[in-house]
Amino acid sequence: MKNIQTPRLILRQWQDSDTAPFIQMCADDDVMRYFLKKLNAAEATAFMQHMRDAIETRGWGLYAVELKATGEFIGFIGLHIHPPEFEIADAPEIGWRLLPQYWHQGYATEGAKAVLKHAFRNLRLDKIISFTACLNTPSERVMQRIGMDKVRKFDHPLVPDDHPLHRHVLYEIHRSDFVHHTFC
């Protein structure tokens, strides 16, 4: 896999040195606020291995992100494929998760724009989706900033009906729309 670089970030394959900060991120109350539960160390390590394997197999996936200036691991940004039984996911999903000290600095938007560019220009994907709980307005704002369009709201099939995170919002962007955005 070739790294994806932006002015401030390197999106790359996972390394063993990412394990400790990734476990910390998956156990952080603020980071995991819009998920059903935090991940323990074993779950986080298994998830990281799954992301590493996906990149190794396909050549793309949810990339580890480091700051160019310091080499620090700050989270992940990339593409994910859901199982076919998850009907809402009819295309790869773009997603991101960063350690809290790196929020509100434009890193998610910067990295996500680079991933979209790679997805449409190099991988020649036709469509990318993204979704999150309706309560997760910070992620929804990133979706808007990277040029995605809101498609609809839906009830997440894996979230209990009475849970505050049950209602989700779905966004998408097509390759044909992407080329019209000025950030290309």
Rank of each mutant, 00 (worst) to 15 (best):
E87L: 13
V169P: 06
E140C: 10
F178R: 08
V65Y: 06
K38Q: 05
P160N: 12
L39Q: 09
H166I: 03
F73K: 09
I74S: 05
A108M: 00
A44K: 02
D161R: 03
A54V: 08
V151K: 06
L158V: 11
Q144C: 12
R124H: 04
L99T: 06
D28N: 14
D177L: 05
R124D: 08
V115F: 06
R167V: 15
R175A: 12
N40M: 07
E172N: 06
I74G: 02
V142W: 11
L39G: 02
D18P: 01
H163Y: 04
I146D: 11
N136P: 11
Q144G: 09
I77P: 01
Q101G: 03
A114W: 03
G71F: 12
I74Q: 08
P160T: 07
S130V: 03
M48A: 09
V142Q: 09
K117L: 11
Q5T: 15
H156S: 15
K2R: 15
W96T: 00
G59N: 09
I4K: 06
E43T: 01
D18Q: 10
A69R: 01
D16S: 05
P157N: 15
G75F: 02
H181D: 11
Y63E: 00
L135K: 01
G61Y: 07
Y107G: 02
K153E: 15
Y102Q: 02
A54C: 13
R58A: 11
D126H: 08
S139C: 13
H174F: 07
D149C: 06
I55Y: 02
L158Y: 05
D18C: 10
E72L: 15
S130Y: 05
F120M: 09
N122Q: 11
I10L: 14
Q49I: 12
K2A: 10
T45L: 12
D177F: 02
Q105H: 02
A114P: 01
D90G: 09
H181T: 01
Y107A: 01
F76Q: 14
K150R: 05
S139L: 14
R8V: 13
M32N: 10
R167P: 02
F183C: 12
Y34L: 04
E110W: 00
I23P: 07
H166T: 02
L165S: 00
A133I: 04
R152K: 14
R33K: 05
R145N: 11
H168Q: 06
L99P: 03
E110V: 07
Q24F: 00
P83V: 12
D155E: 13
I55A: 09
E140H: 04
R175D: 03
L98E: 15
F47Q: 05
E140R: 11
R152F: 04
E140F: 12
I74D: 09
A112V: 03
K113G: 01
Y63L: 10
K68F: 07
F178N: 05
E93L: 13
R121L: 07
L158E: 15
I81S: 13
R141N: 10
W103N: 05
V142P: 02
D53E: 13
